[in-house]
Simulated assay, not measured.
Amino acid sequence: MPRNPSDKRERLTAAAIRLARTQGLEATTIAAIAAEAEVPSGSVYYYFKTKTDVAQAIADGIAAVLAGEAAEHSGAQDPRDALTSFLSSYLDDADTTVEYGTVLSTAARVGSGDAHAQVLAWIADTFMELGFAESAAHARAQHLLAGLEGGAALASALGDTAPLEREVAHLTRWVANAKP
């Protein structure tokens, strides 16, 4: 069945994200993006004229994915459940994280700190829903994200999901016992 041509930018962006995550931005060529998205190489230039355009599309695409995930997690009745769901999502992607790093680390490698700021804001907002003051909520958000990303980085460096699994378990207990 032929693909809808109107979703070409989304397919190209998704392909660029996958490639940047698995092989790095420098090795992510227009030809590779085209092949991954199954579109002619020439049409990629319509959307991404430069490597900077590719990097921006990756950053924007990751931000959109994270916004969607935050909305999914926010559907929980209890803010603790939303945070626990977010923590668990790191385990859903653990094998890919071990091999290539996290989606957030990919955003950082293409030069975007916006994704980190977006996730931190969502986590802080969720802690505020639990009754924490703004400054405490922001401190907790930084602690949670630093723990997750650190566990993921160690898992990647060691080639073993165990550090990430342990950190998610620890942070899940920490969230469950959080009292403002």
Rank of each mutant, 00 (worst) to 15 (best):
M1F: 06
P5C: 04
D7T: 00
T13I: 02
A14E: 07
I17T: 01
I17K: 01
T22F: 05
Q23T: 06
G24L: 05
L25R: 12
T28C: 11
I30K: 13
E38H: 05
P40M: 15
P40N: 15
Y46G: 13
Y47L: 07
F48V: 15
K49Q: 14
K49L: 14
T52S: 02
A57N: 13
A59P: 08
I62C: 02
A67Y: 01
A70F: 12
A71D: 03
E72C: 00
S74D: 13
G75T: 08
G75Q: 00
D78T: 13
R80H: 03
L83Y: 07
T84I: 04
F86K: 08
S89K: 10
L91W: 02
L91E: 02
D93G: 15
D93W: 13
D95H: 10
T97S: 09
Y100M: 05
V103G: 01
T106L: 01
T106K: 01
A107H: 02
A107M: 03
A107R: 02
A108L: 03
A108R: 06
R109E: 11
V110F: 00
G111W: 03
G111L: 06
G111I: 03
A117W: 07
A117V: 12
A121H: 07
A121I: 08
A124P: 03
T126V: 11
F127D: 00
M128D: 08
M128R: 12
E129F: 09
A133T: 02
A136H: 15
A137R: 04
H138Y: 13
H138S: 15
H138F: 11
H138W: 10
A139H: 13
A141F: 07
A141V: 10
A141D: 11
A141Y: 09
G150E: 14
G150L: 08
G151R: 14
A152I: 04
L158N: 12
T161C: 07
A162D: 06
V168L: 07
V168S: 03
H170Y: 14
T172D: 05
R173W: 08
W174G: 02
V175A: 07
V175Y: 07
A176K: 15
N177D: 09
K179A: 03
